[in-house]
């Protein structure tokens, strides 16, 4: 284990928590699930995972985790939202009040249609990886506007799919549902950590069931 300041957290209220923990383990970064405000202490970065954004926003409000996350962000905590996580971090959420409102983007929820419109594809994001990487969109949102201080990392057919500012990374897709580790390495470096292991984008040891090693048991 490294010291606590070298750790990343994954917000553990609902959704794709174990998938991110598995990816962080694969890049050799120490990581833990975060359910309570006190557990933010000493983290270099926090991943807000995919799940259902309405559910997550209710649970965030409930135990004042939203205030604690905003406060930690002011204190230097870096954040990465995937899919629903990106919705929660957005300053503008079309059709609903923003949840954390920490990055100047506007998002449109569930912008592709039903589950039958979910898809996976390869993308090129030169700032993140040189080679093409697979990403998965599950009932994904679209980023429809990025403010002046926001850098666009990936633009696809008329919408923004990944963006960042100095504190926050947002992706509307799920790198944690693929063997692609490039975005997790990118976020670790953004948090000031040096990921370990071979610097390959794809982990050949990953399977769709890899997350299950972190699933809770009776």
């Amino acid at each position: 284990m490294r010291d606590a300041a070298g750790a990343l957290g994954v917000l553990d209220l609902q959704g794709g928590v174990q998938e991110h923990l598995d990816h962080l383990r694969r890049i050799g970064v120490s990581a833990r699930a975060v359910k309570r405000a006190a557990e933010l202490e000493g983290l270099a970065g926090l991943i807000v995972p995919g799940g259902e954004s309405t559910c997550l926003s209710r649970l965030l409000r409930l135990f004042e985790l939203d205030r604690a996350i905003r406060h930690a962000c002011d204190g230097g905590l870096k954040l990465w939202g995937t899919c629903a996580g990106a919705i929660l971090l957005a300053a503008e959420n079309l059709g609903e009040a923003p949840a954390l409102g920490l990055i100047d983007i506007a998002v449109s929820r569930n912008a592709f249609g039903s589950q039958m419109d979910s898809f996976s594809r390869e993308i090129l994001a030169p700032a993140v990886a040189q080679e093409p990487i697979p990403v998965t969109f599950i009932r994904a949102p679209k980023i429809v506007r990025a403010g002046a201080g926001v850098r666009v990392l990936l633009e696809l057919d008329g919408y923004i799919a990944a963006a960042e500012d100095d504190r926050i990374l947002v992706t509307v897709f799920h790198p944690e549902l693929t063997p692609n580790l490039a975005f997790h390495r990118y976020f670790a470096r953004k948090c000031g950590l040096e990921p370990g292991g071979a610097d390959q984008s794809l982990d050949p040891g990953w399977t769709p069931q890899s997350w299950m090693r972190f699933s809770h048991r009776a």
């Binding site: 553990d12 209220l13 609902q14 959704g15 794709g16 928590v17 174990q18 998938e19 995919g50 799940g51 259902e52 559910c55 899919c83 629903a84 589950q115 979910s118 898809f119 996976s120 998965t136 599950i138 009932r139 799920h174 549902l177 769709p208 997350w211």
Partner: peptide, 18 residues
Amino acid sequence: ENRYLLNAQLAQMLKGGV
């Protein structure tokens, strides 16, 4: 096969939920 995986993955995103 890819469609089945996407479908199993939507269920993954429901984990911990009601």
